[in-house]
Design a protein around this nucleic acid. Structure first.
Lengths: 334, 334
DNA sequence: TTGAAAGCGATACCAA
DNA sequence: TTGGTATCGCTTTCAA
């Protein structure tokens, strides 16, 4: 058996309550006593039982991160997010529980809430987000949505400025003389997609250009997401001169498709990615992309959540971090 | 307050013990009673308190995964590993705690063990692995090492066949007529590196070739790992005709460096990666690489751990999954 | 087949 | 400044 507070108490001929108070830094403990307790604790490598403490205190010092089960298609994107989350948690001494969504997301959330497995939850899953949110609103478990702007003013979220990011990309291309600009979307991400699509259309309209439905198409989820869709764009009777991809991985695969068909980037075709994952520096040419501060978003989300764990009555914190266009070699003037 | 077992008991005019036994599927409960209990539990969305249950049962239904804090440099590699881990855990109803290493890894492990935060731990951290292992051997917490073959026969691990994988890559290149083969290593991964180096040297020796120290160099960790190192190889007075990279990300950056210097791959230079992450399909040309079954490794590691959690007296399970050479476009005959 | 009660290992209140 | 004790919510003997 592991060493318990009772072992320490017996060894020092003290009561468990005194030991507990000494260890938890209460003021009403004799200096000398505290010292003895601390030394004994260190000597025995005593750490309080997580379960016992959680039960008594009604807090677990754990927060949950719910991610889609398709994580393996999200590679770097996910790694960078999680990096930020763990950074913020480490500072506060909290631990991270990683949940991947199951088929019944609400049932899963119900269990997590009712079993009090965590103090709060970061919702990064995209499937059934509305359902998940409306369920969590009925529970008392603090939560924050990561990666999506939520309309409901009662819900905290940390996202990035999607409309602005897409607009920046469009204006970059338009001001470089492009008029036939394709958008390689991801219809299975309807929330993000619809925002980006709006900016795409708005930018075209403001520039006095027509909107050509052929130029908007969707990459499917998968290992080489965007490869086939790019090829179909390259089959159009009148080719686009620029493509904005929904994310960097799609852009990278689009680059590959173009290269295989001897379409030169950026001379014949400009390509813009989204997110600025590390790999966007590893292509030839390097990707022009809209930087989403993934790690910062993860960090901020954890911080927001922790502040709600501390006091769930504070007003919702709703943050759109700025997205920034990073111009590199994959785009050029027409 | 959340609903407890007492609420159910009161509502049905039963004792908590009966309710508990009914819910846990004990045989000695009247059929009718069990039905009533189950219905009430469903009606109230009752789930037992995780903390209370853990405290009483001395198991948490949680397993830990300890990963390096440099996760953000591991992008896809990590995502694929974790995918396998979560798959296996989901099947068993266990949850995942994700720990990133702190400066004092042993102190961190001490806390995890003594606070009984998890039922077992998957060690994926590479820094101080020996220290971590020898500490965990003194504790009763089940553990398994992921990604490294451990010599100590008492330690369970799940890795892949490093020697064989590197040997396959070398033989592929040698049989394609290459004799000036560089190895773009990662010295900060000494365990994996030394195994690969051995195979590298052995293959050269068996082929009757000399070992040229200039051809072995190290990529540093970072955003564009391998880029500078590849450039330095391209500065050698006599160029290599082939390069084996420590991982795919390095290979991808090597490809970029070669491309920028107008060294054609595979015509002037063959490049071999390692791991077969999804991005190895997204380059031009696609990467020849040694496939490490990352997701399977994660899954197997979780399974091995769970079997030890169930019974820690079973003999150590030591697994090297096969590594397989995947020949694609980045290598060719001299 | 059911209920009463002990106990898991802490924290926190109240008295001394 | 310290100790005794109730309590958190469950599981699990032991009796009834």
């Amino acid at each position: 058996m592991a060493v318990t507070i009772l072992d320490i108490a017996k060894h020092l001929d003290l009561s468990v309550s005194t030991v507990s108070r000494a260890l938890n830094g209460y003021g009403d403990v004799a200096k000398e006593t505290r010292k003895r307790v601390e030394e004994a604790a260190k000597e025995f490598d005593y750490h309080p039982s997580d379960a016992a403490r959680s039960l008594r205190q009604k807090r677990t010092n754990r927060v949950g991160l719910l991610i889609p089960s398709t994580i393996h298609y999200m590679g770097e994107f996910f790694s960078e997010l999680i990096r930020g989350v763990t950074l913020a948690l480490a500072e506060s001494g909290s631990n991270l529980m990683l949940y991947t969504t199951t088929t019944d997301e609400v049932a899963q959330l119900t269990r997590i809430c009712r079993a009090r497995e965590v103090d709060g939850i970061i919702l990064f899953s995209a499937d059934k987000l509305d359902e998940a949110i409306s369920f969590l609103k009925t529970e008392s478990l603090p939560f924050v949505v990561l990666g999506h702007s939520i309309n409901d003013p009662a819900v905290s979220f940390v996202a990035s400025d999607n409309r602005g990011g897409m607009m920046a990309a469009m204006q970059h291309l338009l001001s470089s003389g492009h008029s036939r600009i394709a958008y390689l979307a991801r219809y299975d991400q309807p929330r993000l997609h619809s925002q980006r699509l709006l900016s795409y259309q708005q930018a075209l309209t403001e520039a006095g250009l027509e909107i050509d439905g052929d130029l908007v198409t969707s990459a499917s989820i998968g290992t080489r997401t965007g490869y086939r869709a790019m090829n179909s764009l390259l089959d159009l009777p009148v080719l686009p001169t620029a493509v904005i991809a929904f994310n960097d991985q799609i852009a990278i695969n689009a680059l590959q498709a173009a290269s295989e068909r001897h379409v030169s980037v950026p001379d014949d075709l400009s390509i813009v990615g989204y997110n600025d994952i590390r790999s966007s520096l590893s292509t030839v040419p390097q990707l022009t992309t809209v930087r989403q501060p993934l790690s910062e978003m993860g960090k901020k989300a954890a911080e927001v959540l922790l502040s709600r764990v501390h006091d769930n009555d504070i007003p919702p914190i709703r943050t759109n971090l700025p997205a920034e266009l990073i111009i590199r070699g994959s785009t050029s003037h027409v």
